[in-house]
Amino acid sequence: MDFLRPASWEEALAAKAAHPTAVPIAGGTDVMVEINFDHRRPDHLLDLNRIGELTEWEVGRENVRLGACVPYSRIMEHLRAELPGLALASHTVASPQIRNRGSVGGNLGTASPAGDAHPALLAAGAEVEAESVRGTRMIPIDAFYTGVKRNALEPDELIRAVHIKKADGPQQFSKVGTRNAMVIAVCAFGLALHPGTRTVRTGIGSAAPTPVRAKEAEEFLNAALEEGGFWDSRAIITPSVAKQFAALAAGACNPIDDVRGTASYRRHAVGIMARRTLGWTWESYRGNGRSTEGAA
């Protein structure tokens, strides 16, 4: 095994081009587990820790450009206002020690259906900035997850940053697990209100082979909110609408039975979380607080 320690982003891209099978290592919280347990023996490890700009972020007018290696603890601390959904999701990841190292770039690299950043990114709206010596491309988050632990990166590409839409309304993240800390999601749900475009976006974790949006549920709700004039009246959402939204969200799942939960439990729980996160965000849109308080 070789340990590549590029000191700059250009060197990292060159190293990845020269060794397309090299495994990037950021926080190491996924990679090192695999190496410690001999599940993976890459011929090259490509360390990203020395590249300072990967741990920086820029807050633009519409987006936050989040460096691939920014650890979760910094997102919780510094980006709660701009990225409330992702900050809430970050807070549910593992433990302080893991959050001090683990990154959204690593979560995307692993692309586990259970990764907690994914529902938040799907709900907020995001693009992955992938770069190689050949150039840069922006991958819409909806097109990024291609299969169980598979993503749209080419072998010579690295994630430079994630461009995430700044919140223009309340966002929520909810996760089902057996305890509050150190728990892989049985399933998770992210929801963002976008009053600017009068749309609602969602993200479901751990209830399908990849993280997915509940598109039908979104379309139904967007139409119902528009027709009922809810965005202007800020009235309480009709229970039947919320119920139908929840049912459609549950229907967007394609879960499996595993040690953490059964498929039918997951479908049920996603419906409940959809209804709750809609309730919480809508209450806060109506002006009743609770925009960044989460629940696990």
């Binding site: 926080g27 190491g28 919280t29 990679v31 090192m32 190496i35 490890l45 190292r101």
Partner: peptide
Amino acid sequence: GVPVCSCLVAAGQVE
């Protein structure tokens, strides 16, 4: 200065 799990830090990363 940051608390981390040393089992998940690759030795080469602490250079």
